[in-house]
């Protein structure tokens, strides 16, 4: 513990300094834009802690009650991979930034790729679930 202290002190002090520089750099934000900035800063945490996390907990509780034991591991793997990539892809899936005069932007079939990926994940989870259930039965 004692041997770690200098490193922790350096990390802590430089962290506080970097954070303060960031706060100071925010002085460039116009007063009128602060509500929007605060909404984004707080909104992300609220969206995760109050919406996304409880939904995932709920899925876990439901799966523990309803899903056959052999299926639950593949379902977790499927959820981690599918969920992580889906959240990451929200901006392109919605094509919110698309511009009518610029066909070179967001020029892929994102939803189709996502749908194919979703089907592949479901098939992989199902295949793993069936295989594991058979192995348990033996």
């Amino acid at each position: 513990m004692r041997a770690q202290s200098p490193l922790r002190l350096v990390l802590g002090v430089s962290g506080v300094a970097a954070g303060l520089y960031g706060v100071w750099s925010l002085r460039a934000v116009e007063w009128a834009d602060w509500p929007s900035l605060l909404a984004y800063l707080v909104g992300g945490v609220v969206l995760h802690d109050v919406v996304l996390a409880p939904v995932v907990v709920g899925i876990g509780v439901l799966a523990a009650r309803l899903a056959p034991a052999a299926w639950r591991a593949p379902m977790v793997v499927g959820l981690v991979v599918w969920g992580g990539l889906t959240v990451m892809a929200v901006p392109v899936l919605g094509r919110f930034g698309a511009l009518s005069d610029n066909p070179t932007l967001l020029d892929r079939s994102y939803v189709a790729s996502w749908a194919v990926g979703t089907v592949l994940v479901v098939l992989a989870v199902a295949a793993a679930g069936v295989l594991r259930a058979r192995r348990v039965a033996k």
Binding site: G15, G19, R95
Partner: peptide, 30 residues
């Protein structure tokens, strides 16, 4: 993806909050 549904300027704000994020991360590691 060139989607900007906010009022603040992106570059200056993303730069400032980057320093806050990395600072908080260093404190967290400490």
């Amino acid at each position: 993806s060139q989607w900007y549904p906010w009022a603040f300027s992106f570059r200056g704000t993303h730069f400032a909050v980057a320093w806050i994020a990395i600072g908080a991360l260093l404190v967290h590691i400490a």
